[in-house]
Amino acid sequence: MFNSLLPNVQWDTIWAATVETLYMTGIAVVATFVLGIILGLLLFLTSKGNIWENRLANAIIAAFVNIFRSIPFIILIILLIPFTKLVVGTILGANAALPALIIGAAPFYARMVEIALREIDKGVIEAAKAMGATTATIIWKVLLPESLPALVSGITVTAIALVGYTAMAGVVGAGGLGNLAYLEGFQRNHNDVTFVATVLILVIVFVIQFIGDFVTSKIDKR
């Protein structure tokens, strides 16, 4: 039935592209989550009045985050080509997109992590200190659990941005639905392929948003 309406759509290609998009997004989200939390924690802990207060370290991390957050993603991919070649060995395929995706998204997420950590009541951190907690305990048992809903809603927003990034990465040869829509859909003028790719990307975004909202509401006991 679909096939008459969508004459140019080859479902196995579409499926392969979807898997590629999910693969790129999935790996990038996990890596961004970890890297972003580390960067966000460093930003927070080195800021004024906090446990590792250090103006120089804070300024360096903030500069790094700001620079990589400001570069438009499509330009970042191109700038990172030598780096990607060095790390992945190629600049084509889904794996080649990962360095750019992660380096593009982690600083963005790091800022959200920092904001989430700032929202934590200072008194709770003080109470943990008064109980004799180590910094590691404060990070694992106070900072992360107390900011978890904001961390999750932040990673949801970031994951959706990452889906968009994978489409852009697709244009320069990374594969996935973006690649398919560009090569099959745009360049060969197969609008039905573009349409299907778009719908699938929308579905992925909606699912991510739904999961994010659901998890946030489950863990938020405030």
């Binding site: 009541d121 008194g123 709770v124 003080e126 109470a127 200190k129 008064a130 109980m131 004799g132 106070v142 659990p145 107390e146 978890l148 863990i219 006991k221 405030r222």
Partner: peptide, 16 residues
């Protein structure tokens, strides 16, 4: 500090 307990005006409990 483990031998000195402290309570606060705004309780400072972990909501989580």
């Amino acid at each position: 500090r483990q031998e000195i307990g402290m309570i606060f005006q705004h309780f400072n409990l972990l909501w989580s």
